[in-house]
Every structure is written in structure tokens, then in C-alpha cells.
Design a protein around this nucleic acid. Structure first.
Lengths: 215, 215, 215, 215
DNA sequence: GATGAATGAGACTTCATTCAT
DNA sequence: CATGAATGAAGTCTCATTCAT
């Protein structure tokens, strides 16, 4: 074993970047699962298999840790949105693709919804976030804007459709179904969390958006 | 037992009822504002201007109090839904009315959303609720079902529209806009909480639903 | 055993005033012994044989508890000063009595010095105290002023003696000897804490003040 | 070993000495400002602009660091006292000079008082100091002894004046005024920290000591 | 000599809850 | 019915100190 290798392996315990990240991942899980107030620093430390003190070493306090998690969550989804390739598609297909992306992202990253929610529950308390959030303009939002415009140019989409409203509508349709899955399943007496039910929901969402847009 | 005595007992009972209710109202506010974990029994007692011990006297513990608040919230919205008069309307107008009702109810009762959310955050923890929730079938849901059916009969609405999906879609469109108002305003760099913005949202929601439904 | 008696005895555990006071006494000891930063809430609770939580129930936090202790310390010494009876004495005797009082009070209440010291270490941090402290005018100071004046009238005391300066001088002579007893004993290679040494100190202090005052 | 190498080692040693000293200075400030228990190792490192680990490298632990600061404080004042030139003066003038020196030293080195105080608060805890402190006999004390003796010989000073008592008295008069400046200013409703007030204090102190000594 | 990363013990404080009247 | 007093468990955060390079 070469010196380099050895030191890099032993580094495991002394890698600041890695430790910071391990904490961030653990915190994301905990905050998503329990909300800000329900989250426990102890549990985060446990999840991260790191000393509790380190959390404060890297993140000052619970609030700041939450901020960091929130920002990372935004950054993550923005990054995923970057990968969307819609240029060659026809507007209707592109819209379907956007809806599908949103749906699958939420499905695969349920923490995102939970954390977004927590953040909004405490509104005023996370004021600093604002600045950073605004700067991170959503690529998906931009794509939606372009696709909409293109469709309207072609006369395929209604002229009065607003990208912001539509963005919120798509997110809301997906979010509400997933976030309140538990209550909704109870109310409607049907398990909405099966793969089949989820597929149906996606179809419905596409239908709604495209039905609304078509002239 | 003299009349006087009896009436003083009735007074007490009325007081008891009133106290219970005062607590419930205070708890609803607190839970809505801070979520389940962020809510403080002390603060509820303060809001209610009643002794903390009374809360335990009437509601056993925090969890049960939350249950009671949740049930009341459901009962409230169900009751409001009862008042909906759609019988004489044409299906499209009826749908618009339903969307409008949902929107205005959420606007006027923001606690409802917040509490629903809290409940879903803790999923497994509020298992007992299930029973009661199911029993309280939503009148609005029933109306939606009927209106949809009628519209489909008349050939005015697409045949594949499902009331459950649509219900969730309407709720989601309204919910997401309102619950994440803070973050969305930041991201889009526009204040979404003005009356004007709210009116626009309602128009959009009606457009979406009716655009989707029309054949 | 009468009901009254019984309840008043059992009251022991439910007497707010007494609990508050027990805490205050315990806190005084702890703060005196360890200073503000060295003091431990746990130890105060232990000393008071009361639940730690009660300390916060009655005093909000450590800082406020210290404030309360400080104010009580001032109140105590002021009260002790009230008992001084100098009216009938000749000025020189009265002065001696004042010096003696100061000396014995410090000797009997060593916490007073320690707490005064802690307060001054943190200067800016206990700003609120100012108001209350000023209001509590020192009776001893007033007596000193009068005795000085009387002695000056009689031509027994030098005319330029200022009561404030003298007050500080008396306090300082007593304080420094007692507060730094440990270091001074080490430096001078003599135990300054024996009764004999203490008596000698008192004589010296009287000599200094009267020697200074006599014309 | 080449000259170059050697000199680089000397550089290191000089650096080491400098680092040690930087830490000591920073620690003195911190201990003076916050007391032993209030002092923070982190803050000392910050003040010194040096790594925290170095503090432990040079001083073992907080306690030992405090010891070092304390000893340096003693050494400093002893050194300053060395410079006193009283041989040619008449005893009364010499006494005035001694009082003045004490006053100005305390004024210029307020940390000294604060640290002395901290040390005495913890009495038993700094036992080791004793040895070293005793060895460092105070030059000022020695001068005071001599001046007193000379004055007594000349019949200018009272015969029963004891140098130890007088030393403590002088220190106490100065100390109490300065250390409790904050509280005293509040109690007497006058700012005792102005230059004018300080000058008055010095005059008073000289008056007291000389008034006491003169036969 | 110097430093960033890591830690265990323990500090202050908070919270839901119960006691006793 | 109503309430002030009391509590144990636990939560966030701090601190002196050590590890590993």
C-alpha cells in the first residue's frame, strides 16, 4: 500500500468536506421526516455516525443547518432540471415531459417536499434564504416559459396561459397528492401510494395541463 | 335540588363547554402557526387565557388535543361545504363555483391547510384519526361527483374525468399557491399575496379545470 | 391535628414564597463561592433541595437570578445599616462605630463582597441594575454625611473631608483585606484570617480614618 | 550544521518565544475581561491570532495558563516598583510618591486588579501559586517599610504605623474605587471615571495616609 | 512549530405533564 | 370547575481538550 493511498484512506476520519456532507445528508433526512421542530440534533448525529459537536462546528446551529439543507435541496432540483432535454420536442410532448419530470422528481425525492413545507411553515424565520433562493432561477421554469411561448406561436396552445401560474399548478397537483397521501387514502378509502395509482395520477396531470392548454 | 342550584349547574356546564371551546380555538391557532412540534401548550393556555392544567383536564394530552383540532377542522369544512347550492346550475358554472368555494375557504381558513399538513407530516402517529375521517364523507366530493356525471351525460365534459383526481387537483392548485406563498413570492420575485394576485389565481384555476373538462 | 395545621405543614412543598426564597439563598451562596460564570444552576438546585426547573419557573434565567441575588444583597446591607444608632454619640465615636459596622458586616456576610465583585466584573452586562441600585440610597452613607458634618461644625474634623471619598476608603480598606486574604497571607507570610489579625485590622482602620479626620 | 540552518533554528526559537508571549498577552486581556471562568480559550486564540492547539502546547491547560498570567502580572508590577526612586526624598514626600505610584499603576494596568481578584475568588484552586508569589517579595513593600521607619525615626510619623497594614490600606483605597467604579458611579449618581474625579481620588488618598501618619 | 478536525462531558434551558388544593 | 406549584426527561448548545498530520 502506497503512502498516498494509506493517508487517503485514513483521511476518512479527517475529511472536512466529507464530514460536512455526511451531516448535510443526515440532516436532510431528519428534517424531511420530522419537520424543523420535530427534528433532533442527536438523531442527525446518530444518522451521520458523527459527533454531535461536529454539527455545530460546521453549521453553527440548528437553524443554520436547516438553511443549508434547504439551499442544497433547491440546488439539487435545479441541477436535475438542467438535464432536461426538450429542444427537439414538439410543445405538447415537451409539456408532458415537464410534468413527468416534476412528478418523478417528487416521487424520488420526497424530502424536497417536506423541507419546502417546513420552510414555509416558519415563514418569517428563514428570511435570509430569500436572497439565495431568488438567485437560483429555476431552469424548469425557464423551459416552461419557452415551450409555452413556442406552442403559442404555433397556435397549438391558448394565448392566455401564464408560465408562473402553470408552474405552480403542476407542482401543486403533484405535491398535494404526495404530501397528503396518507389523509387522502383514508378519506377516499383507496391506497393512493401504489405504483398503479401513481401512474394514473401522472396521466391525469398530463391530461389536465394539456387539456387546459389546447385551443 | 332548588332551581337556583340546578341552573348554576347548567351554568357550569355551559362554562365547561365554553372553556373546552376556547381551548380548541386557541389550539387551532397555535397548531396552525407552529405545527404540531412547534406548538406550545403554554402558548395555547395563554391564548385561551385559561390555566394550562385545564387543557389536560379536557384533552388528556397534546396529541389528543391535536386530534380534536384536526377533527374540528374537518367538521368545519364539511359544514361549510353543506351550504353549497349547485342544483340549479349548469355543470360548467357548478364546477367554477366549486373551485371558487375551495379557494375562498382556504383563503379564509388558512389554519386548515397548515393543520392538514402537520397531520400528514406525522403520518403514522395519528392513526386513530383514520376511522373518524373516513366516516365524515366530504359533501363537496359528492357534489363534484354529481356535477361531473351530469356534465358527462350532457356531453359537455370529457368522459374520462375522475372526481377523485379532480378533487385533488383543485385542492392542490389552491393549496400549493397559498401554503408556499412565501417561497414562491421570493422565487418569482413578485408578491403573490395581493388581492389582485389572488384573483388572478382563481381565474387560472377555473380556466385549468374547465379547459381540461371541456370536450 | 387540625385541618389548618395539617395543610400548613404540608404546604411546605407548595409554598411559593418559601421556595423562591430558598432558591435565592442557595443562589447567593453559589454565586458568592464561584462567581457568576463559575456558578452552576445544578448546584444551586442541589443546595436548595429543589427541582432545577423551579429556578427557571421563578427567575427566568441565570442572569435574572443573579440580578435578584444582587438586589437582595443590597437590600440586606441597607437594612442592617438602618439599625445603626449614632445619634447620641460624639463624632469620633460615631465614626469608629461606622467603621466597625462595615468591618463586621463584611466579615459576617462575605457573599456580599464576592457578589459585588462579580457584578463589577461584568459591568455592562447588568445594566438594568443601575436603576434599582440608585433608588436604594445607603443609610450608612447618609449617617456618615451627618456625622462628618457635625464633627466639622464642632471643629473636631478637618473641613475638606468628603463623605463619598471616605465611604469608599472605609469600604476599600475592609474589602481588600478580606477579599484578597488568601494572596495577602501568602505574600506577607502571615495568616491574616485569624481573629487576632482581624482585630488588629479593625484597629488600624479606625486609626487611619480618625487620624485623617482629626485637625 | 551550516550557519544558515543554525540561524533558522534560532529564528524558530525566537518565534516560539514570540508566540508564547502573544498568547500570554491575549490571555491576560481575556482573563481580565471575563474572569477565569468567563474566559474562553477560543477567544484567547482569536485574540492571539494563533491556533488554539498552540495554547495547550505552551501552557498545558487553562489553569496553568492562568497561573502564568498571574505570575507575569506580579512580575510586571514588581518590575515597575523597582523603578521607584525615593532615596533622596523626605518621608512625607516619599509616601505621597508611593501612593501616587500605586494609583497610576492600577489605572494604567486595570488587568492587574481583575486578575488578582479572579485568583482570590478561587482561593484553594490556585495553591501552587503560593510558592512563587512569596518568593517575589514586593519592592514597594520594602520601600514602604524603609520610608516608614525613617519617618518614625525623625519623629514625623506616628510610631504604631505598620507597613503591612498601610500597604493593604493604600491598595484597598485605590482598588475599591477602580474595581467597583461602575456600581459606585451608579450608587452615588456621579461619574467616578472622569480624569477630574480620578485626580480628586488621588488627593484624597494622599490626605488620608499622610493625615493618619503625622503625629 | 503549527493547525484543522474531532470529541465527551456537561452547561443552560425548555417542555409536556402531574400534584395538591 | 379551576389553578399555582412542582417535576423529570430531554433538547440545544458550549467548552476545554485531544487527535492526526
Amino acid at each position: 500500500m502506497s503512502k498516498l493511498r494509506k493517508s487517503s484512506i485514513e483521511d476518512k476520519q479527517r475529511d472536512a468536506e466529507r464530514s460536512r456532507n455526511t451531516i448535510l445528508v443526515a440532516a436532510k433526512q431528519e428534517f424531511a421526516l420530522a419537520g424543523f421542530d420535530g427534528a433532533r440534533i442527536d438523531r442527525i448525529a446518530e444518522r451521520a455516525a458523527l459527533n454531535k459537536r461536529l454539527i455545530y462546528y460546521y453549521f453553527t446551529d440548528k437553524e443554520a443547518l436547516f438553511q443549508a439543507v434547504l439551499e442544497e435541496a433547491y440546488a439539487d432540483i435545479r441541477q436535475a432540471e438542467q438535464a432536461l432535454e426538450l429542444a427537439s420536442m414538439q410543445p405538447p410532448q415537451a409539456i408532458a415531459k415537464l410534468v413527468e419530470f416534476t412528478w418523478h422528481y417528487y416521487l424520488a425525492n420526497p424530502e424536497f417536499l417536506s423541507i419546502l413545507n417546513s420552510a414555509n411553515l416558519h415563514k418569517g424565520r428563514h428570511l435570509e434564504e430569500e436572497g439565495r433562493v431568488k438567485r437560483l432561477n429555476s431552469p424548469l421554469m425557464q423551459l416552461l416559459r419557452e415551450v409555452l411561448h413556442k406552442g403559442q406561436q404555433q397556435g397549438a396552445f391558448r394565448a392566455d396561459a401564464d408560465p408562473i401560474q402553470l408552474y405552480i399548478t403542476i407542482a401543486g397537483m403533484a405535491y398535494f397528492y404526495l404530501a397528503n397521501n396518507y389523509t387522502l387514502s383514508a378519506v377516499f378509502g383507496a391506497d393512493l401510494s401504489t405504483t398503479h395509482a401513481q401512474d394514473e395520477r401522472l396521466v391525469h396531470m398530463c391530461d389536465v395541463v394539456l387539456g387546459y392548454l389546447k385551443v
